[in-house]
C-alpha cells in the first residue's frame, strides 16, 4: 500500500524550499492575473487603448499561459506540503472552485469576446466578471492561512 507522509516532502525539510516556492507562486500569479487584467481593462476601454482588445489578448496570451502553468505547478507543490490541511480548508475549497471556473471562463467566454472585438454591455460584463473572479482567488489564497 502506498502511504504519503508529508514529513518526507522536501518542502517540509528544507529551510528555503517552501518560501521559494511561495515566491514563484506569487510572481506567476502576478504574471497570469496581471496579463488577464490588462485585457479586462482594455475591454472596459481603459489602459492600453492603442491596441484593440484582440491584439492585446494575442500579445498577452503566451504570458498568461506561462503564468498559469507556473502558478498551478507551484500551487500543487505547496498543496503537497500538507494535503489534508488544505483539503479541509474552506477558503482553499472555494479557491479551487474559482480557479476551475476562472480557467474555463478565460478560455471560452472571455477569449471569445476579447478576440471578436465586440464592445458594449457584454464586453463590459465579461471584463468585470473576470476581474472579480481572479481577484477573489487572491483573497481566498490569503484567507487559507487565516481560518
Amino acid at each position: 500500500m502506498l502511504v504519503y507522509d508529508p514529513a518526507t516532502n522536501p518542502l517540509n525539510n528544507n529551510e528555503w524550499a517552501f518560501p521559494l516556492t511561495e515566491c514563484i507562486h506569487i510572481a506567476a500569479m502576478a504574471f497570469s492575473i496581471g496579463t488577464i487584467a490588462l485585457v479586462d481593462l482594455r475591454l472596459l476601454g481603459l489602459g492600453l487603448t492603442k491596441q484593440t482588445a484582440a491584439q492585446l489578448a494575442r500579445s498577452t496570451e503566451i504570458w498568461t499561459l506561462a503564468g498559469l502553468v507556473g502558478v498551478i505547478t507551484s500551487g500543487l507543490l505547496i498543496f503537497s506540503s500538507d494535503p489534508v490541511h488544505y483539503l479541509h480548508n474552506g477558503p482553499f475549497q472555494f479557491k479551487m472552485g474559482m480557479l476551475l471556473a476562472g480557467i474555463v471562463f478565460h478560455y471560452t467566454g472571455h477569449r471569445q469576446v476579447a478576440l471578436s472585438g465586440r464592445r458594449g454591455a457584454r464586453a463590459w460584463l465579461i471584463a468585470c466578471v473576470s476581474l472579480l473572479l481572479w481577484l477573489s482567488l487572491v483573497f481566498a489564497g490569503i484567507f487559507i492561512a487565516f481560518v
Binding site: 500569479m29 504574471f31 487584467a37 490588462l38 481577484l135 490569503i142
Partner: peptide, 17 residues
C-alpha cells in the same frame, strides 16, 4: 494583505508587460 496581493497582481502584470 489581500489588497496588497491584489495590487501586486495588477501592478506586477503591468510592470512585466
Amino acid at each position: 494583505m489581500s489588497l496588497h496581493l491584489s495590487s501586486i497582481a495588477m501592478f506586477g502584470g503591468m510592470i512585466l508587460m
